[in-house]
């Protein structure tokens, strides 16, 4: 919303043009949005770092130099961001930290998509008792204290990246399911769906070919907001010391550990917090931009 305001973008072109131009228009609108482009650049940078960390990082993330423990930025050549409490290059650990964050962010949203969309579509399209049961289920899950369940689950099964993804996925699909259900509910009354139904098109085909593609836009936007939420979730758990296993770096863990060192070694706290903030901002900008570009009239 803020992004829209910033660019004064309210001039939605008339809806209902052909499919191809819809996406082209969206892309044009997105690229005209300055913040969205900045966000995209940040996201692409982090994705690049995540994928090519091995090539970009000056040191492996677990390479220890016992004679270089807790050095400040630029104190030693070759360690522009200093070293950590074990004697590892902090810049390299930050770069590898992007890999952890991106993996968790994307994986959690994939799981959310794979659970939320089928469940939501089922509830929205079939309706009746199925809808009632699924809706109650969603309502119940909404009231679950998600963070505490994540803590409990990791206590049961231990930490590690897959377990963190699992723990965060437990509640991540709820929003998407709710959204999909709502979208399908409103779309299935539309004329073209009625028409398809009358001409005897099968249910699966109606859902897959007619309803879902049209419901996809808000889902896409929701996912682009879900990724930073998952990154935040991982960072939060790791911050509390129960997320990603050592020696694999995670920004949240780096922030959490730095708490014991911050009185002297400020750099341990500063850089990972900037990384987390940048990642969150980047994805949110992209999310805002996507929403404005894809559905200019959609409000919240």
């Amino acid at each position: 919303m803020t992004a829209r305001v910033a660019t004064g973008l309210d001039l939605a072109p008339t809806n209902g043009e052909r499919h191809r131009t819809l996406w082209q228009d969206a892309a044009r609108r997105f690229l005209r949005n300055r913040l969205a482009v900045i966000g995209l650049a940040i996201v692409l940078l982090f994705l690049f770092l995540a994928v090519f960390a091995d090539l970009v990082a000056p040191f492996p993330y677990d390479k220890v130099y016992f004679d270089r423990v807790l050095r400040f930025p630029f104190e030693l050549p070759g360690h522009p961001l200093g070293t950590d409490e074990v004697g590892r290059d902090y810049l390299s650990r930050l770069i590898y930290g992007a890999r952890t964050s991106m993996t968790v962010g994307v994986a959690v949203q994939m799981v959310a998509f794979l659970i939320g969309v089928p469940l939501g579509s089922l509830a929205g399209y079939v309706g009746g008792r199925t809808d009632f049961i699924i809706s109650r289920f969603i309502d119940t899950m909404t009231a679950f204290p998600g963070l505490m369940f994540s803590i409990l689950i990791i206590s049961v099964w231990g930490g590690g990246i897959t377990k963190v993804i699992f723990a965060l996925s437990i509640t991540s699909w709820i929003g998407i399911a709710r959204l999909t259900r709502g979208q399908i509910l409103s779309l299935r009354e539309k004329e073209y769906v009625e028409a398809a139904r009358c001409t005897g098109v099968s249910q699966n085909r109606i859902i897959l070919r007619h309803l879902l593609p049209n419901a996809l836009t808000p889902i896409l936007v929701s996912i682009s907001f879900g990724i930073p939420a998952a990154i935040f979730g991982e960072a939060g758990l790791s911050f509390l010391g129960i997320g990603i296993n050592d020696p694999i770096p995670s920004w949240g863990k780096m922030v959490g550990v730095s708490n014991a060192y911050v009185r002297v070694y400020w750099h341990l706290a500063l850089f990972p917090t900037i990384a987390v903030a940048l990642a969150m901002l980047g994805f949110s900008f992209v999310g805002d931009g996507l929403r404005d570009a894809l559905a200019p009239k959609m409000i919240e």
Binding site: V5, G236, A277
Partner: peptide
């Protein structure tokens, strides 16, 4: 306002907390 809103909504509270500590308590 827009900037604060962006920051507040996206940046986790513990990150903001660390920044405050770094600046107002440590520095």
């Amino acid at each position: 306002t827009t900037f604060i809103a962006m920051l507040g909504i996206t940046v986790p509270s513990f990150v903001v907390a660390m920044w405050l500590i770094l600046f107002f308590a440590v520095r």
